[in-house]
Amino acid sequence: MADKVRENAVEALSGLLFDGMTIMAGGFGLCGIPENLIAAIRESGVKDLTVVSNNCGIDGFGLGILLENRQIKKMISSYVGENKLFEQLYLSGELELEFNPQGTLAERIRAGGAGIPAFFTRTGVGTLVAEGKEVREFDGELYVMERGLVADLSIVKAWKADAEGNQVFRKTARNYNPMMATAGKATVVEVEQLAAIGDLDKDNIHTPGIFVDRIVKGAVYEKRIERVTTRTKEAA
């Protein structure tokens, strides 16, 4: 078996980064983001990146640290509201932005990874999203054609993986990670726990190792929470 496991995030990305490349980054908000690989991309200084990710982190964390370092040329996202620097860079013309409806973005990635170059969806018909795209009628309803999406590199965060790259995600940290794992020409997965071969339940692998080229156990996990929201315990 080819050894997919790497010692650290820098090694896991070694030889895979180049200026002008497209990178898919898993996560929804700050939940389930590959924080160690993002830090290593910042350290590498690679630039002019097109980044496909639902959001763009926050100021100082997640993909926000690549914005600070001016490494991102274009974002393909569904929602970017949490980031002051993003707004500044966008309004000053330093950053390009392509909005995709969240479900369309997820399906474009799923399709790209599954070898499907385009699909039709009702989402966005009659809106700006459909401008310049083919609209076709099926069974009396209008649908807009959206293209499958692939990337030069996908960076994925799983909870656990074994050395084969079989992955298990945890709670809502799964989000875009499984599809992105399939849609990268190269896919690097970072995990909180590296499982021994045989320890993961084979019937409960969320994403099989075939989609994974390299695996690294993250050195540190901050796992910041964007909006801590709690309720108070009622007196017994």
């Binding site: 700050l30 939940c31 796992k223 909006r227 108070t232």
Partner: peptide, 27 residues
């Protein structure tokens, strides 16, 4: 829509889980 059916209430203070948020990014 970030990937859950059967959303429960907000957690008690100290019991927040970074891996468990809603589409508004609340715990």
């Amino acid at each position: 829509e970030n990937g859950m059916l059967g959303m429960g209430p907000f957690p008690y203070e100290g019991e927040e889980d970074a891996d468990l948020i809603n589409a508004g990014k609340q715990t």
